[in-house]
Computed example of a mutant assay.
Amino acid sequence: MLEGQMIALSVRDFFTKSMLKIAFLPLIITMAVLLIAFYSAADYGFDSLQVYIESTQNGQDVTVDPNAPFYYIWATAVIGFLFQYSVTSWLVGFLFYTIGTLFVMMFSVFTTLIIIGFLTPFILEIIQKRHYPEIKTNGFGNILSPLWVLFRSGLIMVIMFFVLMPLYFIPFINIIAFNFPLYYFFHKLLNYDIASTILTKEEYAVIHAKKASSFRGRTIFLYILSMIPFITLFTAVFYIIYLGHGYFQELKKIRNNEDSIINSLDKKQITN
């Protein structure tokens, strides 16, 4: 199957009633919790700053803890200065809420991905019954293995963030340096969830040895897709459908080759 045909097939599967039910429920819950937490913290922070600004404007003495870290004192002074003027106050507030909202949207993708990971078997079962009824899945994952992969991949992602930190100050390169750890986490989590549900360890090793670059290209495409605003709000299920088709297609080839080898051996035994 050509890649374009696989994408078109995945899109059609995604827009079925059963898939849309799975797609929107975890995302709505995730977005609601994250946005409530963010805006509650933001409102509290801005209210505290407003009290600070009004106190300084009224000539009241506002003391800062001398034991506070230098960056806290510096940040309080700078933000307090900016909030003294209506124009800069509005600009800072606008940027804070805009950037914060975008961050919440991006973070919600990974949170949704984690939630969807627990629903991966149900999604792949629907795909298998609809398109690959002749293929029996025999996954190698267990209850604890996804949590271990999640912890390990998350830890490596954090380490990458610190290691690549010097590159964040170089224009253009910083875009790649910042996204590379996120992509690593994205790639590892998606591939493990799907492969461990469908394949045996031996089958995964065979596919990974031959088609690792193909699946890496697919996850790069999906990661770039996830960076488009608002599309990320409901595409996590599509990621599983698309990569699931990729693994089912490769598994089908392996099983067909095994059957052809067995048939050829049987024919040789009969002739002998």
Rank of each mutant, 00 (worst) to 15 (best):
M105P: 02
T98A: 09
F122T: 12
W74A: 13
I116L: 10
E125I: 02
F81H: 06
I127G: 09
G80Q: 04
V78H: 05
I123S: 13
E125N: 05
E125Y: 05
F103Q: 03
L119K: 11
T137I: 07
Q128A: 09
W90F: 15
H131S: 12
V92R: 06
F122Q: 15
S89W: 03
G117L: 15
Q84V: 00
I99C: 07
Y85I: 08
F103I: 00
I123H: 08
T112Q: 08
L113T: 06
L82V: 11
T101M: 09
Y85T: 10
F96S: 14
I79C: 02
Y97T: 15
K129F: 14
I126Q: 14
I123P: 09
I116Q: 04
I79S: 04
L95A: 02
I114P: 00
I115A: 05
A77E: 15
G93K: 11
N138S: 11
Y85L: 07
K136T: 14
I99N: 07
F118D: 08
K136W: 04
I114S: 06
T111H: 13
T120Q: 05
P121E: 02
E134T: 04
Y132F: 14
P133C: 08
I116D: 02
I123N: 10
I73P: 04
E125C: 03
V78Y: 11
S89P: 04
T101C: 06
Y85R: 05
I123V: 14
M106S: 10
P121F: 00
Y72E: 11
T88P: 03
A75E: 03
G93Y: 12
T111R: 13
R130S: 03
L82G: 03
I114Q: 00
F103P: 00
I135L: 14
T76P: 04
T76F: 04
F103S: 03
A77I: 12
F107Q: 00
I99E: 00
F107V: 05
S108N: 13
L119D: 10
F118W: 15
T76L: 15
I114A: 00
V109M: 03
L95Y: 04
K136F: 10
Q84Y: 07
Y72A: 14
F81N: 11
P121T: 06
Y72H: 15
H131W: 13
N138H: 07
W74K: 13
L91F: 12
Y85M: 04
G117D: 11
T111M: 14
I99P: 08
T120G: 06
G93R: 15
R130M: 03
E125K: 08
S86R: 10
